[in-house]
Design a protein around this nucleic acid. Sequence first.
DNA 1: AACCACTACAACCGCAGATCT
DNA 2: GAGATCTGCGGTTGTAGTGGT
Length: 507
Amino acid sequence: MDLPEEIFVDAGNLKKGPWTSAEDAILVSYVSKHGEGNWNSVQKHSGLFRCGKSCRLRWANHLRPNLKKGAFSPDEERNIVELHSKLGNKWARMAAQLPGRTDNEIKNYWNTRIKRRMRAGLPVYPLGIPKCASAAQYCYKQEDGRKMGTRVDSESEFASSLTLGEPLSCQLNSLHGGHQVRSFYPITSISDDPPLSTVVANEGLGGVGKGIGSLLPNIKQVCHSPYGETDSRDGSVLFSQLSDVSSETLHAGSYTKASQTCTHNSVRSAIASLFTGEPDPFIVPYDGANGLLDMPFHSFAPSASLKLELPLSQLAESAETAGTSGSAIKGPLMSLPLSRQLPLEADSFGSNASDFLEALMKEAHPTIGLDQVRTDLIDQLLVLTSGNMSTEVAALSGIDKGRWGDDINPVATLEACAFGHREDVSQNCCIGCVAEPAIQPLLPSVEATSLSASQVAGPRVDDILAEVPSGVCMDENYVPLLDFPSSDVVPEWLSPPSWGYPMHLPC
DNA sequence: AACCACTACAACCGCAGATCT
DNA sequence: GAGATCTGCGGTTGTAGTGGT
């Protein structure tokens, strides 16, 4: 056997780095003779210049028999997600339940997956997989090296617990370090009941997503305003769809409340995003003192928000530099998920939407059928566009006649589509829609005209990034979008780490 | 062909608990 | 019981491979 010399040099200077096949052979030979354990003696008796820990790791992760190699099967992936939902980052315990897989393998898989999903703005856990109270905790690094943690507890269970028309109460309990702490109660609960869930949102950021107004129609102390449905206690806006956007700048008064159309899955997704700490692209900035007045939006059309929810490529690099560029932008910002994964030019959606959607679908869930992902994505399109999806986009999206109806008119059939999902309407209509006829979708306010591809595309991402103020903490995956040049002062709450992600506390 | 960005994976490190002396 | 050593775990870092420009 030809062993590299460096393996044998200076016993006091143990080798590090990648293992060679020769070293592997020595280790295998040693373990086959002496068995596992006593790893520190391996170096003494085998001639390997590796520390005991390194030997143990090499054996456990690569050399021991019955190790499975290669990519995880869909079943294994599902198991990992479920196990993680129950166990959190207990890699060794997870590995014990996945024969042939190592903790390191599972950990690497999970971390990669987390990154990918967060970058894509997707929930860490697919809907339907409940998170246990003891489970996951995710962190991401801020630019300054600090970690921003999101404790995820039983939010998914909370979302799952919502039933049709169930009234909820949202209360602003207190402020913690510039964060709003909101608790959600069943409106029927007695005052001493614990909240169903507690949400900590950035002060000044409405942590309630657009469309949630339709989901939680009976939230207490929600009042209607021209700018949305405003929670009079904490200033958050329960936003409905924006519409009537055709110019570069959208003033608060120029949009109208449009439809509340949504399908079951989309609703669940929207709710879940509230409680999982995943960035919700619908989160609407709201300054409690100044409201939404005189806050120009960058073509924040429904379709633009659609586009912007989708993973964007070529942004990370810009984002890294954006934080240091001077800018006049001041004020609340909206965070957006970015992605380096997809070949989407920010303003080219109209030209290659099909490819893009395909890529998105694969990105969204590589292990389930594209048709399934497509269906879910279409649901998102329906919600995000208030039904103003152009027939062009609809066609590119592969929406079939069966879903649109015979005339393939998305708008004309929107209501039917939104509530006539592929699943049973009676069970899957959005929360409150059936139980509360008074808040049925306001379809008449939506013009039956299609948006052009350029409208769909919205603002150029580069333009947005160029406007990012200096001093804003930029997570590599999230960039501010909206600008509010009415003030020269960056609000305190905007300083890191208080913007970007909604934060959550354990119940 | 060279460069760059990105991903997946291997390996290391520090810590804590268990076990041994 | 106390200190030393071993073992396992989870977080982090380094790097090879790959694809795009």
